[in-house]
C-alpha cells in the first residue's frame, strides 16, 4: 500500500470511505454547476472556518503526481496558507509550489490568482457561508426552495435597495453570481474584483464549505455572471496607482500602512504574480525597497 508521509494516517489524511463520499459529491457538483451538494463533512484537525471544506476537497482529489499551491489573501506566506500547505506536505508528500503556473491544484482563501489559469488546473476555494441568500433568509428550508424554483427576486431587491440608499451596489466582496444561467452562487469572500476571472475560466473550480457541509463547482468554460442592473452595470474595484513594487496595474492591491502619519503603499495581493514580474525586471515606484 502507499506509505503515507505521516505514519498512522491515510494518504491525504482522510479515510478511503470519506474520500469516496466527497468524490461522489464533487461529481454531482460538476454535473449541476453552482448547486450546493450536501456532504457529510468530517471533523478535521484544523478548526471549522479555517478551511476545512477546501482541505477536504483537496484531500479527496489530490494524487501523488500533483503539485499543490496554497494561498490565503493571495499570498503563499500567510500563516493559514503555510499551515494548510504543511498539512498536505506531511500527509501526502506531494510537491508544493508558490508558482501559479506550476501548480496542478491551487487551494485558495479570498483570492483568485492574477495569472490566467489553464486547462487541467483545479482551483479549490475555502468557503465560510456557501449560501448566497443566507443573509437575506437565514433558513435553509426557505433558501433551498428558492433555489429549486429559481426564485432570486430577494437578491435583486437587496441590490436595488443598496443603489437607492448608497447610489451603488454596496457589496464589495462575496458578490453573488449566476452560474450557467441557472444557480445563484456565492463566490466565497473573494473581492468582486476577482469575479470576472471565474467566467469561462479554463480551470475547474471547486468550492468546499466544511462547517456548512456543502460542495459546489464551476466546470471549465462555464458562464459566471455577476448580478447587476442595466442602469447599474457590474463594475470591479479599481486602484488609482499601480503596484509600488512591480508596477503592475489592473491587479488587486493590498494597502500597507507605513507609519502613523497616514503614509500608505499599495502592493500586489498576489505575491507570486508580484515576484514573477519583478524577476522579469518590472519595477514600481518603490520597487527597490524590498528584498
Amino acid at each position: 500500500m502507499n506509505a503515507p508521509a505521516a505514519s498512522g494516517y491515510n494518504f491525504a489524511y482522510l479515510d478511503e470511505q470519506t474520500k469516496r463520499m466527497i468524490r461522489r459529491a464533487i461529481l454531482k457538483a460538476i454535473a449541476i454547476p453552482g448547486y450546493q451538494v450536501p456532504f457529510a463533512s468530517r471533523e478535521m484537525p484544523m478548526p471549522y472556518g479555517w478551511g476545512t471544506g477546501g482541505v477536504q476537497v483537496t484531500a479527496s482529489i489530490i494524487g501523488e503526481d500533483d503539485v499543490l499551491k496554497v494561498i490565503d489573501q493571495g499570498s503563499d506566506d500567510t500563516t493559514n496558507a503555510v499551515s494548510i500547505r504543511k498539512f498536505f506536505e506531511k500527509t501526502t508528500g506531494v510537491a508544493t509550489t508558490t508558482a501559479t503556473g506550476e501548480a496542478t491544484i491551487i487551494q485558495t482563501r479570498h483570492r483568485i490568482p492574477e495569472a490566467p489559469l489553464t486547462e487541467g488546473q483545479v482551483l479549490v476555494y475555502q468557503v465560510p457561508i456557501p449560501e448566497p441568500l443566507r443573509f437575506l433568509e437565514p433558513r435553509e428550508t426557505e433558501t433551498r426552495t428558492m433555489h429549486a424554483l429559481e426564485e432570486y427576486g430577494l437578491m435583486h431587491v437587496k441590490l436595488y435597495e443598496d443603489i437607492a440608499r448608497h447610489g451603488h451596489i454596496a457589496t464589495s466582496y462575496d458578490y453573488p453570481v449566476m452560474v450557467a444561467g441557472r444557480y445563484l452562487m456565492d463566490p466565497s469572500p473573494t473581492p468582486k474584483f476577482d469575479n470576472p476571472k471565474m467566467h469561462r475560466s479554463a480551470a475547474l473550480q471547486l468550492f468546499g464549505a466544511g462547517r456548512e457541509k456543502r460542495i459546489y463547482a464551476i466546470p471549465p468554460y462555464t458562464d459566471v455572471v455577476s448580478l447587476d442592473f442595466e442602469d447599474h452595470p457590474f463594475e470591479v474595484n479599481r486602484f488609482d496607482t499601480p503596484c509600488a513594487l512591480c508596477g503592475a496595474s489592473g491587479v488587486y492591491l493590498d494597502e500597507v500602512v507605513l507609519d502613523d502619519r497616514g503614509r500608505r503603499m499599495f502592493v500586489c495581493s498576489d505575491t507570486d504574480h508580484c515576484e514573477t514580474r519583478r524577476a522579469d525586471g518590472h519595477r514600481g515606484a518603490d520597487g527597490d525597497a524590498t528584498p
Binding site: 478548526p47 471549522y48 472556518g49 489573501q73 493571495g74 479570498h110 473581492p191 462547517r211
Partner: peptide
Amino acid sequence: QATGFVEHLKLPHYVDFQAELGL
C-alpha cells in the same frame, strides 16, 4: 463548529477589508 467560525475572524481578511475600504 461555533468556536471555529467565531475564531476564524482572527484570520487575515485584509483583501476583503480592502474592498470595503475602497467602497
